[in-house]
Structures are given as C-alpha cells and as structure tokens.
C-alpha cells in the first residue's frame, strides 16, 4: 500500500496544457477512479503517476518519498493497459513471469509466484498459450496476472475493460473489485464509463480540461454534483437540465413552475437539474407523453411539460402510458439541483 500525493502536478505539450496544477491525494489502499471524457487529462495523470510521462511542473509523492523523477520500474507500480499490452511472442507463463525475470528472481520463486497469480485469476490452464490464442477477457486476466505477480503497492489501470463486450466487462469489473479487496493495494483507475466508476470507486475524481471538477465518493458525486458538467456526465439517462429564473421562491420557465425548499436570490438566472428517476406517481406537474421506451425492469418516458419543458423520466414499469397521454407526477423539491447559469456551479 502507498499513499499518492499529486502536488500541483502539471503536464504541458508546448502551449497545450494537458493537466493543470492537479492537487490530489489518494489514500493507502484506496480505489480512486479518474473519470472524464476523452482529452480531459485522466490518462496523462495516470502516466505521470506511472513515470511514463515526464512531469512538467509540480511534485509527485509516494508516501513521504518524492518520485517526481523516479523511473517507472523503481516506483513499485504495476500497470494494466486498455490494449492489454501482452508480449505477443511470449506464452502466458512468460508474460506473467517477465517482470520477475527482469528483477533477477530465481526460477523456483518465479514458478511459485506465476502459479499463485494464475490460480487467483483462474488462468492456470492458459499458461502454455500465446496471447493470440486467447479471448479478450482471457488476455485482460493475463495482463492483471502480470500486474499482481510483482505484488506492487500501487496498481494503475488505464481503461482496462474498454475493449471487452458488455457481459465480460461486468464480470471483469467484479474480478477487479475482488482483487482490490484481497490485495489491499492502492488502485488508480482511469475510465470514461460512469458505471465502472460508480461501482468500483471509493472516490471519484471527475476531470475536464486537465482540471478536477469534483472529488468525492460515488454517492456524493451523484447526489451533489458540483457543477453542470459533473451533473451531466453521471447518470443514465442523463440528468434533465432546464434553464430558467428564480421568481417568487420557485424555479420558473414560462408556465413551468417548481417550488424550491431553499431558493437562491430572486431573479437569478439558473439551470435546474432533475434526475430522471426523481419523480413520483401523482402530483401537481402535468405533461404530455411524447415517447415511451420500455426497458423491462423500468420505463423511460420523454414528456413535454408546461412552458415547453422537455423532460426524460425513469419510472417503474407499472406506470402505464402511451404517446399523447396526459401524465401527472410529483417532484420532491429536496431532490432538485440548482446551478448558477453563468458560472455553471451548484448553488
């Protein structure tokens, strides 16, 4: 285990600032997920922690030791790549054994460690095969094996499940979570998949433009998004965002009016955030159903409320509705998110 401290960590490519004075502290044995869209700086941050990317400014510490200029192999980190990065000419056994061989461990030690890692990942029967004879899921297990065999204090994972199909991704997600619990090491995991982030993370750092937008637990980020970007990035279907003003202690947009428990100042231009699932049956909001998308366990409804406000609702499958129906539903004011329109931050 190790604590990782990024102090004003910066990476620039000429005039382009990829990571902008990042401040982040990752605790012993914590599972930290860096979440964000392409180009937000999450992989660059991971590469700087790995030592694969030179740090332009700032400091990086593992526990109390500065590792800003320490080469990758001396940082006691293991990395799992999106492309698996398995050596194609080596067998699974040789791939897993490779980092130990480079460290000059004895053949018996290597054999024992490779056997244990293979057993843990249930790939013992694959040890004699080459990567091109394996499926995507098997390759990722081998990549994990190569990482865990060294018993590093920090695991770095760069979108490791992105190349897998949905079913496999789900089972591999479970495997990674189990590994984290068993190994008790510090994990830094990069993804653009909010479901992966929510299910795996102890804390999530949502990034955009090289900056952390919000750092919090998955629940904290989902329940109290710091700004419109974070609110919109998490949740499926995405949060409903409606522009309007505060009038008479309520959010108002034309004829659409929602009373607020703790309203900002009168006349302020704001953006209302409503999670699709934060509605209840029966209430004083009425809308016309435009589109019905039954998903089996639940139904998504696209509705048009007063004032031309278009909303997507996630409702129980028992709600019966057809396009053109008038629908009444309730919205708990405590579940609403209000953002300042100009600064896009939470009010």
């Amino acid at each position: 285990m190790a604590r990782i401290t990024c102090a004003a960590l910066t990476k620039s490519y000429g005039a382009v600032l990829a990571v902008d004075a990042l401040e982040l502290s990752i605790g012993h044995g914590e599972f930290m997920v860096l979440l964000g869209p392409s180009g937000c700086g999450k992989t660059t941050t991971l590469n700087m922690i790995a030592g694969l990317e030179e740090i332009s400014a700032g400091r990086l510490l593992f526990d109390e030791t500065e590792v800003t200029w320490t080469p990758p192999h001396k940082r006691e980190v293991a990395m799992v790549f999106q492309s698996y990065a398995l050596y194609p000419n080596k067998t699974v056994r040789e791939n897993i054994a490779f980092p130990l061989r480079l460290r000059g461990q004895s053949a018996s030690e290597i054999e024992r460690a490779v056997g244990a890692a293979a057993e843990q990942l249930e790939i013992t029967h694959l040890l004699g095969r080459r990567p091109n004879e394996l499926s995507g899921g098997q390759r990722q297990r081998v990549a994990l094996g190569r990482a865990i065999v060294r018993k590093p204090s920090v695991f770095l994972m760069d979108e490791p499940l992105s190349n897998l199909d949905a079913t496999l991704r789900l089972s591999m997600r479970g495997l990674i979570k189990r590994l984290h619990q068993e190994l008790k090491a510090t994990f830094v995991y990069v993804t653009h998949d909010q479901a992966e982030a929510m299910t795996l993370a102890d804390r999530i750092a949502v990034m955009k433009g090289g900056l952390i937008q919000q750092l919090d637990t998955p629940e904290g980020i989902y329940e109290r998004p710091a700004n419109i970007f974070v609110a919109g990035f998490l949740g499926s279907p995405p949060i409903n965002l409606v522009e309007g003003v505060i009038a008479g202690g309520a959010f108002t947009r034309g004829d659409f009016r929602l009373a607020l428990t703790n309203p900002p100042q009168e006349g302020r231009a704001v953006v209302l955030g409503l999670r699709p699932e934060d509605v209840s049956a029966g209430g004083d909001v009425t809308a016309r159903v435009e589109l019905v998308s039954p998903l089996g366990s639940e139904t998504h409804l696209d509705v048009l409320a007063e004032g031309g406000v278009a909303l997507t609702l996630r409702v129980p499958k028992e709600w019966r509705a057809a396009p053109g129906d008038r629908l009444s539903f309730g919205i708990d004011p405590a579940r609403l998110h209000i953002f300042d329109k100009a600064s896009e931050t939470r009010l």
């Binding site: 030592g51 192999h73 990065a85 480079l102």
Partner: peptide, 19 residues
C-alpha cells in the same frame, strides 16, 4: 503500449529491444 508495459515491468533499453 508494449514499450510502456516493458518500462513499467523494469526492462532497460536493451531488454526492450530484445523482448
């Protein structure tokens, strides 16, 4: 990524060339 993986695994420049 193969070179990056090898660097993290601890391979020096000659070992990266060979492996």
């Amino acid at each position: 990524d193969l070179y990056r993986a090898a660097r993290v695994d601890g391979a020096n420049i000659w070992q990266r060339f060979v492996h």
